[in-house]
Amino acid sequence: MTAVALKFQVGARTLASVKRRLVRIALSLDDALAGTAPSPPPMTGDGYLVTSLPEALVGQVEVGGCVAVVRQRYTRFYTDLTVGHDAWLAGLSGSARSTLKRKTKKAEAAGMAVRAYRTAAEFDAFYPLARGVSARTYQERLLDAGLPEDAASVAHLRAQAAADGLRAWLLTIAGEPAAYLCCTVQGTALRYDHVGHDPALNDLSPGTVLQAAALRDLFADRFARFDFTEGEGQHKRLFASGGVACVDLLLLRPTLANRATLAALTAFDGAMARAKRLAQHPRLAALAKRVRR
């Protein structure tokens, strides 16, 4: 059980949050694909947060009187690594293949190089270079989701590398670190855990180019799938070959405070969903485009 901040969030910006003591049940990609509902342990705090629960199983997760609310819906994307690189590439749209080729050529012309890391000693070389990139990324500045720097987390990553449970890549431009990818093993999949690129080099698309290079390596590795984890995004949709429709399910004790929190979260999430739909209206989209100019 841990203190979980239930966030009132607009995009990457958190407007407010309410903390609750929750048991977090995080399903792996293997779990989500198996389609078996989890059995929550006895309740000791305010409730549970179940992540990556297949949407079809929402009604099958019930805990003694808890009030359940779906916080978000998303596709948990993955790439099937058993099909081979050529078959995966052929499965992409012509536009996607053209985009990857064009971006890779542009990065190569700027002096791109990619290096892979997997052992503990190699992780020691990778980490300080990747941390330098991470410190400049929006993931670290806005989401507090950069490459960890506390001693315990770094030691854990190194231990995973020593046990053949880590794969990492660094992309450089003209010898300078520009993007990194650090992934760990979970079941039969390799997870998309820590990623970032130097925003000053956005025009070279270093993150996209690095992801393509990493997947090329992984088709010759031992993993069944590359797991893009929770949440969606254009980057994930570009590289994925499949996905599972999932939800994050919040279950809280039916106390007055918890009911008030759930009501506020539900109202806020509903308002954000309506605002997103309105923003996609052609006239509003055109107006937003003019304002950005």
Rank of each mutant, 00 (worst) to 15 (best):
V185C: 13
V185R: 15
G187S: 02
G187K: 08
T188I: 10
T188L: 10
L190Y: 02
L190S: 01
R191G: 01
Y192I: 07
Y192D: 08
D193G: 09
V195M: 14
G196M: 10
G196Q: 10
G196Y: 14
G196A: 08
H197E: 14
H197V: 05
D198P: 01
D198C: 12
L201R: 01
L201Y: 08
N202R: 14
D203N: 14
L204N: 02
S205M: 10
S205T: 05
P206S: 03
P206T: 09
G207S: 01
G207L: 06
T208K: 03
V209K: 01
L210I: 04
L210S: 00
A212C: 10
A212T: 07
A213F: 05
A214S: 07
L215V: 09
L215H: 00
R216A: 10
R216D: 00
R216L: 10
R216C: 04
D217W: 14
D217C: 09
L218P: 00
F219Q: 04
F219G: 02
F219C: 04
F219K: 04
A220G: 09
A220C: 06
A220R: 13
D221A: 15
R222N: 11
R222S: 12
F223R: 07
A224L: 12
A224Q: 11
A224K: 08
A224D: 13
R225L: 01
R225S: 02
D227C: 03
D227M: 05
D227R: 13
D227K: 08
F228E: 02
F228L: 06
E230M: 14
G231I: 11
G231W: 03
G231Y: 01
G231M: 08
G231C: 08
G231S: 09
E232L: 03
E232S: 07
G233H: 05
G233V: 12
Q234A: 15
H235W: 15
H235Q: 08
K236A: 01
L238H: 09
L238Q: 06
L238A: 03
L238F: 11
L238D: 06
F239W: 09
F239C: 06
A240N: 02
A240F: 07
A240P: 04
A240R: 00
S241M: 04
G242R: 07
G242Y: 04
G243L: 09
A245D: 09
A245K: 15
A245C: 09
A245P: 15
A245W: 04
C246F: 09
C246T: 03
V247D: 03
V247H: 07
V247P: 04
D248E: 11
D248M: 14
L249A: 03
L249F: 01
L249D: 00
L250Q: 01
L251H: 04
L251C: 05
R253K: 15
P254V: 13
T255H: 10
T255D: 00
L256C: 06
A257Y: 10
A257F: 10
A257I: 13
N258W: 12
A260K: 14
L262T: 02
A263W: 15
L265N: 02
T266V: 11
T266H: 05
A267S: 07
A267P: 09
F268G: 05
F268A: 03
F268P: 11
F268L: 11
D269I: 12
D269P: 08
A271V: 15
A271R: 03
M272E: 14
A273S: 12
A273Q: 14
R274M: 11
R274E: 11
A275D: 08
A275P: 02
K276Y: 04
K276S: 11
K276L: 11
R277H: 09
A279M: 12
A279P: 06
Q280C: 09
H281C: 09
